[in-house]
């Protein structure tokens, strides 16, 4: 008997996750896995629980029951920074910008965490003293961070923005920067919450290119997106939520043809 070799390595496991806010059930017993080097689309009408699910995975929201783990180690119960240190990062529906920093400096913030083993600052106090006294070693590291940041901005196609103040960015540029920043931490799992909304066609193309290249480099990308056409085009697999429950999972074609899914979306439009 030959074992069927799975081409996919399991990375992120979501097992029986439920979230209740008082009497409201936002996420109900959701289970799925996401694998390295795949784009997993997460679909569902408004209020289906997609963002809440992302909050649970990224450590922002503690689930009422169930757990999330990555490569066997438990993420549930850890703080946001620790989840990030294990390689799970995300973007937000409304991009979070670090006003006061330039585009390059924003990426350097992300890089600093990666360079020092996942979280920043690393060892308590020592980093503050090294920075304050401007030790030669620290200055060298700064130069390295800067070079890495420029490489990442070039890779994201936004090298021209490097020196600009983040306050001056247009919405689409904010999205591209937030995406580049998230990729700067070399995540294993990247959660993208509606990365295409309110973008022009060129920007959409740039984000989709980033998503594909992240997948090519082995990242498990979880993609929440209302632009169903784009989502089905870029996703390898799709999970569909409705009223907090998983109602379908499978290939984009299979999911698009699923009567339950069609019903959920049409039902939503009628409401």
């Amino acid at each position: 008997m030959t074992a069927v070799a799975s081409p996919l390595t399991t990375t992120l496991e979501v097992r029986g996750v439920s979230v209740r806010f008082g009497g409201v059930i936002a996420v109900a017993d959701v289970t799925f896995t996401a694998h390295t080097a795949e784009v997993l689309g997460v679909m569902g009408p408004n209020g289906a629980g997609k963002t809440t699910l992302f909050n649970v995975i990224s450590g922002v929201q503690r689930p009422t029951s169930g757990e999330v783990s990555l490569g066997g180690s438990r993420l549930t119960g850890r703080g946001v920074e620790d989840v990030a240190a294990l390689g799970v990062t995300r973007t937000f529906q409304t991009p979070v910008m670090f006003w006061g920093l330039t585009v390059r400096e924003s990426v350097e913030v992300a890089l600093a965490a990666r360079e020092f083993g996942g979280t920043y600052p690393p060892a308590p106090w020592r980093e503050l003293l090294r920075c304050g006294f401007g030790t030669p070693g620290r200055r060298r590291e700064n130069a390295v961070l800067r070079e890495c940041a420029d490489a990442i901005l070039t890779g994201a196609g936004i090298a021209a923005m490097a020196g600009r103040a983040t306050e001056s960015l247009a919405f689409g540029e904010e999205r591209l920067l937030e995406m580049a920043r998230a990729l700067a931490v070399s995540p294993n799992v990247l959660l993208l919450d509606e990365p295409l909304s309110a973008l022009n066609p060129d920007e959409i193309e740039a984000v989709l290119t980033s998503i594909r290249s992240a997948r090519a480099s082995g990242v498990a990308v979880l993609l929440v997106e209302h632009a169903v056409g784009e989502l089905l085009a870029v996703a390898d697999r799709v999970v569909v939520l409705d009223h907090g429950r998983k109602i379908a999972e499978g290939s984009p074609q299979a999911v698009a043809a699923d009567p339950l899914v069609i019903d959920a979306y049409i039902g939503d439009e009628l409401e």
């Binding site: 990224s58 922002v60 703080g79 946001v80 920074e81 990030a84 240190a85 990062t89 995300r90 937000f92 979070v96 910008m97 670090f98 006003w99 006061g100 920093l101 400096e105 924003s106 350097e108 913030v109 992300a110 600093a112 965490a113 990666r114 996942g118 979280t119 920043y120 600052p121 980093e127 503050l128 920075c131 304050g132 006294f133 401007g134 620290r138 590291e141 700064n142 961070l145 937030e178 920043r181 998230a182 700067a184 931490v185």
Partner: peptide, 26 residues
């Protein structure tokens, strides 16, 4: 020295978007 280093940039990042910075490991 501090404000122009990684430490200072991280401070500005948390003051502008604490959760966003945390999701990067800050």
């Amino acid at each position: 020295n501090v404000v122009r280093s990684s430490f200072g940039r991280a401070l500005i990042a948390i003051s502008a978007g604490e959760l966003g910075a945390q999701t990067l490991g800050v």
